[in-house]
Amino acid sequence: MSNKESSRDIKLLLTEKPDKTVSKKQFFLLLFIGTLASITIFVVFELLPQYSEQNKFLVNSAKTYAKDGDILIDANLTMNFTKQVVEALENGIPLTIAVEVQVYRKRPWWRNDIVKESLQLFELRYHPLTDVHVVKNLADDERYSFNSRKEALAVLGTIRGAHLIKRKKLNPGEHYFVRIHTLLDINHLPPALRQIAALSSAWRLESNWFQWPVTFADNNSSNQKHQEQAQ
């Protein structure tokens, strides 16, 4: 009987140990670990993409204008590849170039209301037999052949009178903005290459967002003077 009692005593003692509550020390430990984790996540998500090849992909100019009840867009984009990307292209790796355009309404103290979003994906592929570069629009499977990479990229970077949005979808009383950017989409690379591309700055080709306000005036009333560089 005494044995049972003694073991109960010991267990009682055990439960009295102040282990169960979070002490000040443990709180600071948790805080420290949390901070470490936040810093790591910040580095991975914010600083890593920043560390990329500058000025390889650029939006030189862009404008919108109204024509026949539609809002159309013109834009000049510059796309240059790093030598690692060129090497992959010449070794038969298809590259996917994305051009993303967004029409949005700015809201004070609130995130922007995106009215229209369009993502155009183009695949660039080199054909060694015929020595041509073929650009394929992934949306409609339309193909264009070019003698050189430069020509292909020049054509890709020139957008003329592309349909953006119906004019009636926009409320004239509101202020709308358009923004455009272009990037090399590594999601469509062959799996074996993706990890390297995700970690290497040579593969991180992306222009900044280029934004400007939408005008409803007909014809080519240029807005280039009001352009502002986002970010």
Binding site: L36, A37, I41, L48, N187, Q195, A198
Partner: peptide
């Protein structure tokens, strides 16, 4: 993720972050 995923890049970064956090911890 390296096999097939449309959102490879985001996912990859997330996983990288998770792994790094675990590593640091």
């Amino acid at each position: 993720a390296s096999m097939d995923a449309e959102q490879f890049q985001q996912l990859y970064y997330l996983l990288l972050a998770v792994n790094l956090v675990i590593l640091v911890m």
